[in-house]
């Protein structure tokens, strides 16, 4: 039985690396954005893995539980609370980026970042 926490940490590192690769090297803007969502997913997974406790219980105090037993066995809930916020932030950032992409597609007719986000000085040939 492999250590759950270690496996998950490795997965989160893999997600961050895949995301960084695609956000930096892939030309298509939608794939760049997908890569960015993978970075966020990897970071969230990492932070949740911090709060995990092997053999622990879900950190919700049900009626009838002994509080001192609960305190020693429950997982650490603070990282979970942080991740909840961070998931929603990631989604809203992604939505704004996609909206900007849709506006820019109307102007350029392509999803390539080389065309869309080129330097203003080299921009003359795309001007109408």
């Amino acid at each position: 039985m492999a250590d759950v926490q270690l496996v998950i940490l490795l997965t989160s590192v893999a997600l961050v690396v895949i995301g960084l690769y695609s956000a930096i090297f892939i030309d298509n803007i939608i794939k760049k954005i997908i890569g960015i969502s993978f970075i966020e997913e990897g970071v969230n997974l990492f932070i949740v893995a911090i709060g995990y406790k092997a053999g622990g219980v879900v950190p919700i105090l049900m009626p009838g539980m002994d509080t001192s037993w609960f305190a020693t066995n429950a997982a650490y809930p603070l990282p979970f609370g942080l991740v909840l916020t961070s998931i929603v932030i990631g989604a809203s950032t992604l939505a704004v980026m996609l909206a900007l992409v849709m506006v820019l597609y109307r102007r350029y007719g392509t999803l390539s970042t080389k065309v869309m986000l080129a330097d203003t000085s080299k921009r003359e040939e795309y001007d109408e």
């Binding site: 956000a23 960015i36 932070i47 990282p79 992409v101 506006v103 869309m116 986000l117």
Partner: peptide
């Protein structure tokens, strides 16, 4: 719009890194 998108893509790389540091 181009500048805004560029800033946002860079920001979406920068801020998860910061969150990882906080983690």
């Amino acid at each position: 719009y181009e500048m805004a998108l560029k800033y946002m893509v860079l920001g979406s790389i920068g801020s998860p890194m910061m969150l990882l540091g906080i983690g």
